[in-house]
Amino acid sequence: MNYRGSCHCGQIAFEAEGEIGEVLACNCSICQRKGSLLWFIPRQQLRLLTEPEAMSTYTFNKHVIMHRFCPRCGIHPFGEGVGPDGQEIAAVNVRCLEGIEPESLRFQHFDGRAV
């Protein structure tokens, strides 16, 4: 399935391909504050519809995840990094996808505070 997503103002727009089986609800310091619900996909299944220069990036802790956000509206639609297997991944915030009701999804809770 192909999903369209964006930040609130539309400056960052993208498409993500795949099936949303479950989403990760993390309690780390950034996810807790953002309220993100993350769907992990191979990075090649995320296609930007806007120029990368339209995004800002935030990293913290070990600086291995690039948290992408819109400098205009402040919304964080996805992050990018490398998975444990060495493959590039995208962590899509499903709250930024069109036509998705987050309450209808299965949640996996992750204790990010403990990492």
Rank of each mutant, 00 (worst) to 15 (best):
residue 33 R to P: 03
residue 83 G to F: 10
residue 66 M to G: 13
residue 94 V to E: 14
residue 19 E to P: 01
residue 70 C to T: 03
residue 40 F to P: 00
residue 51 E to N: 13
residue 93 N to V: 08
residue 3 Y to L: 12
residue 106 R to W: 01
residue 27 N to P: 08
residue 27 N to L: 08
residue 7 C to M: 02
residue 46 L to N: 12
residue 28 C to W: 07
residue 9 C to L: 05
residue 6 S to N: 12
residue 18 G to A: 12
residue 68 R to I: 13
residue 98 E to L: 10
residue 100 I to D: 05
residue 95 R to F: 01
residue 79 G to F: 02
residue 90 A to T: 11
residue 56 S to P: 01
residue 102 P to K: 03
residue 8 H to W: 11
residue 114 A to T: 09
residue 42 P to V: 14
residue 18 G to T: 12
residue 110 F to Q: 03
residue 105 L to A: 14
residue 100 I to R: 12
residue 54 A to Y: 01
residue 100 I to Q: 05
residue 37 L to S: 04
residue 88 E to N: 15
residue 35 G to A: 07
residue 95 R to K: 15
residue 69 F to G: 00
residue 59 T to V: 12
residue 32 Q to H: 06
residue 60 F to C: 01
residue 55 M to A: 08
residue 53 E to C: 03
residue 102 P to Y: 03
residue 101 E to Y: 02
residue 9 C to G: 09
residue 5 G to A: 04
residue 83 G to A: 14
residue 75 I to M: 03
residue 107 F to P: 11
residue 20 I to A: 14
residue 61 N to K: 07
residue 53 E to A: 10
residue 70 C to V: 03
residue 13 A to M: 08
residue 51 E to C: 10
residue 65 I to W: 13
residue 30 I to G: 00
residue 86 G to W: 03
residue 97 L to D: 04
residue 65 I to V: 12
residue 29 S to Q: 05
residue 107 F to W: 06
residue 57 T to L: 06
residue 21 G to K: 10
residue 23 V to W: 14
residue 73 C to M: 09
residue 61 N to T: 15
residue 39 W to M: 12
residue 70 C to R: 06
residue 44 Q to C: 05
residue 88 E to V: 05
residue 77 P to V: 15
residue 23 V to F: 06
residue 3 Y to M: 13
residue 17 E to C: 06
residue 34 K to S: 08
residue 38 L to D: 04
residue 38 L to Q: 09
residue 91 A to K: 02
residue 81 G to M: 01
residue 80 E to P: 05
residue 30 I to M: 09
residue 1 M to C: 05
residue 79 G to E: 14
residue 74 G to A: 12
residue 47 R to Y: 09
residue 92 V to E: 03
residue 107 F to D: 01
residue 86 G to H: 07
residue 105 L to S: 08
residue 22 E to F: 12
residue 28 C to F: 05
residue 21 G to Y: 06
residue 94 V to H: 09
residue 6 S to W: 04
residue 27 N to M: 10
residue 85 D to T: 04
residue 38 L to Y: 10
residue 96 C to I: 02
residue 39 W to G: 04
residue 105 L to C: 11
residue 64 V to Q: 12
residue 4 R to H: 15
residue 4 R to S: 11
residue 30 I to A: 00
residue 80 E to W: 02
residue 59 T to K: 10
residue 6 S to M: 06
residue 77 P to F: 14
residue 18 G to M: 10
